Simulated assay, not measured.
Amino acid sequence: MVSRVPRPPKGPDTADAATRVWFALRPRDAVQVRDGRTFIAGAGGGARTRRPWPSTVAGALGAAFKAAASGGKPEPRTVRGPFLGRWDSGERRWHLAFPVPADVVPAKRTPRSHDRWTRLRPRSVPARTDLGRDESLWLHANDAGKRDDRNERDLWWGDDSMRDYLHHGTIGSDIRADLLTVERRTGIARQGRTVKHAHLYTSDFLRLREEPDEGWEFLALCELDPDLAPPPPGPVRLGGEGRLADLRVCEEHEGIALPKPPGRFPEGKVLVYLATPAIWRRPARDGGWNDTWSPPLPENARLVTAAIPGPEHVAGVTPESDGTFTNAWLRWAVPAGSVYLLRFTGPDPEGAAQDWAARAHGRAWGEEADNPDRDGRRLATAGFGLILTGTWT
């Protein structure tokens, strides 16, 4: 889908128009994206296979742009994603799927209940934490259960349910856990072309759901400079083990779009939903930057509470032209599906909330050109920390 949209102001100047293009990546086989922790051959190690990170998809797209260019260093201005998308051949359009928000949990099971879900709500309780935010509220529900196993942690629902959740706080009926399947495979560790003695290992791979009537793919939305053309369709590397995916551009008539934000934010209350993992950073005393669980808050806004399942390990490297890698890093990330509840103050809290949400919705926190954290901005433009905004009560 190609359209012209204005970029946000870049300091005193205003950038020229950008081209927005949706890309689809269809894996040819199961994919492997490790979380960056140590892998121990024979014992499985601490490393786990995860869904493709934003940097995984940004790297695949960047390589495709570079291979298609005749010179220079072309790359998208921003890459937003990845998302899961289902191609409906009957309607000839895409349907997006999103991680179920962390404040939507299974209800406690009783002899008369089955597959029932409930919503955590902010509540004031006489308790203190070590987070330094005594005014924060707790998220609570009398009938709340837990997402105990992997299937209940890796949950998805469609774009209609996501829109209703953001606008009205309702829980969709299409929650499912079968979009990604884990395949465990056994391999032999090698050194060059020689097999290491007694080095068998097992590793997990992820496979997108494959059914005759359901074609799932990874999707990403890119902003391109006006003179940068999308690369032609073809195979690109996605994840480890030399796995390939077929890249193509989604056409405008295929109807792909993110859910829109609400029109009003009563009492200045804004719900911030993470559509992709986020690496929030704050200034450190030594002049550097530290990773943190809390996002940089907009002016005149305070964090009321948050629902965060737990930290994730994210690793990355910078590929060189000779096939080697440099600048390896390992960071803590807040997982996709996390929820932050903000409340704006001041003379017009509802107006301030609406103005900020209009600027932030569908973008990554920290991608602005005036962000003093260069590495943080690079992570944001690669897709980390993309948010959708909604309301809460």
Score class of each variant (00 low, 15 high):
Val105Cys: 07
Lys10Asp: 15
Ser55Pro: 11
Arg150Asn: 00
Gly169Lys: 01
Arg378Asp: 13
Leu238Val: 04
Leu25Pro: 13
Pro12Gly: 11
Glu210Asp: 14
Gly242Trp: 02
Leu341Cys: 04
Ser55Gln: 10
Asn142Pro: 05
Gly337Phe: 00
Pro9Arg: 14
Pro347Ala: 07
Leu166Lys: 05
Arg343Tyr: 01
Trp87Lys: 04
Ala284Asn: 11
Leu224Asp: 01
Pro106His: 03
Gly376Phe: 07
Asp174His: 05
Glu211Thr: 14
Leu341Pro: 07
Ala357Ser: 12
Arg80Gln: 12
Val182Tyr: 01
Arg285Ile: 01
Trp117Leu: 12
Ala382Val: 01
Ala315Phe: 01
Trp216Met: 11
Ile188Val: 15
Ala69Met: 05
Phe39Gly: 03
Phe218His: 15
Phe218Pro: 13
Ser321Arg: 10
Arg50Ile: 02
Asp225His: 07
Leu208Val: 05
Gly346Pro: 06
Arg128Glu: 10
Pro230Leu: 03
Pro262Ala: 02
Asp348Leu: 02
Pro106Tyr: 00
Val314Ile: 08
Arg150Pro: 01
Phe218Tyr: 15
Gln191Ile: 03
Arg377Ser: 13
Asp154Thr: 09
Arg185His: 10
Gly239Ile: 07
Pro232Ser: 14
Gly240Pro: 06
Asp355Ser: 09
Asp225Cys: 04
Ile175Asn: 14
Cys250Trp: 05
Trp365Val: 11
Arg190Asp: 03
Gly44Asp: 08
Leu180Pro: 05
Tyr273Pro: 08
Gly337Arg: 00
Ala47Gly: 08
Glu252Val: 10
Ala30Arg: 11
Arg128Pro: 02
Asp103Met: 04
Thr292Arg: 04
Pro232Lys: 06
Gln191Lys: 10
Ser113Arg: 15
Ala198Pro: 02
Asp149Asn: 14
Arg285Val: 03
Thr129Asn: 13
